[in-house]
Design a protein around this nucleic acid. Structure first.
Lengths: 206, 206
DNA sequence: GCACTATCTTTACATCGTCAAGATAATTTT
DNA sequence: AAAATTATCTTGACGATGTAAAGATAGTGC
């Protein structure tokens, strides 16, 4: 019936010296910090404060600021892929519809989490040589290639891949940056339909 | 024979108190700093050092760091447009060829000046409410709309504008960020041809 | 010649990232 | 179970940064 985590010590200590799961707490805090301050205003000490620990605590888990942002970026890529899968699950099973839905998920992620999107696609702060981040990023790229191949017939040409990826990415980047205001002002259903049309367009061979 | 700075002394003084054209020198220094350190590592004191003045000298001309980056971003937009015009000048006068060339210039700028491209399209540091920057940015947007309209027949639909802009922007952003490695590895002529094909593709109505 | 303003320097302070050393808790070893 | 070791977190310090305030110097207008 007790809510605390230590079996022998009943009273919740005000500030336990050991956090328990500081690593996860710091990633969560880092996302909040990123959303608040943006990639360029991101502060490691701010994250520590959000997590309620001293300013040097993150060092042990992530080394330095770049380490924390690298871990957050990897998590961002995983969510990015997950958002694409969600959109695909709601679409017809036809390959072309699946590819278009994946593009829709791409853009939706950028709109829903602009700070994370910018971190993973337009920042030098994460270390893209890091293995975990590298794997997460390549998983996203692999998903795209897979669907273009399924839609256009194997093997997908570099033209097809570049056209589809660029279109989805361009839409995502411009919209999440607040440009293309006319599109941002559209009702969501209408905007989604337009995104699908434009992604399909990128496939049609000239 | 003395080296100090008297107005009637023809010899170049070692360090004149008044720079002469510090504003321009600082913008130039800021570009070098941006190229060296990136948007996120950009330092105002570093710019001052490059220009050979004290660290507080920029304040009088630009207010703060954001002010300097805002001025640099405006200059970046002007060069961005200029690069598009250059590509257009080398292309056939047909509207469609002009539009495609404009897209090619878009991508070329991103590849030639990745730091400036990121500053104007993927950074919160410049103040986009600033009038000078705002005007420069809208000039770029206007150029695009103009050419899409000329190519597709007036008035250009939002679908057409979004499709063309997103494609060019996506290509530019992905390439300048070092993704789409297969495309980066292509010889320049081949890559240019591909960019033109993909931009044209974005125009074809489904 | 003199006041006034623009431009630049110096000084100062809060914040940031990072390192080093110490404190505390958990784990392993004996 | 006690001791030793390791992992985790705190404290204190340092240099770098952005910015504000005050002083120094040069150009301008009267």
């Amino acid at each position: 019936m007790h809510s605390q985590s230590h079996p022998d010590n009943a009273i919740e200590p005000s500030t336990p010296y050991h956090h328990g799961d500081l690593r996860a707490a710091l990633i969560k805090a880092a996302e909040a910090e990123l959303i608040d301050k943006g990639v360029e205003g991101f502060s490691l000490r701010g994250c520590a404060k959000r997590a309620g620990v001293s300013h040097a605590a993150p060092a042990h888990h992530f080394g330095d600021t770049r380490g924390l942002l690298t871990a957050l970026a990897a998590e961002g890529f995983r969510r990015f892929v997950a958002t694409q899968y969600e959109a695909m699950a709601a679409a017809e099973p036809r390959p072309q519809a699946q590819l278009a839905a994946s593009g829709l998920g791409y853009v939706r992620f950028a709109l829903a989490r602009p700070a994370l999107f910018r971190l993973i696609f337009s920042s030098d702060r994460p270390n893209f040589d890091n293995e975990e981040l590298c794997n997460a990023a390549e998983a996203a790229y692999g998903l795209l290639v897979e669907h273009v191949t399924a839609t256009c017939g194997a093997p997908a040409t570099i033209d097809d891949i570049a056209a589809v990826w660029s279109t989805a990415h361009g839409l995502a980047d411009l919209l999440s940056a607040g440009r293309l205001k006319e599109v941002l002002a559209m009702p969501e259903a209408e905007r989604d339909a337009m995104i699908l049309r434009i992604v399909i367009r990128a496939l049609s061979p000239a």
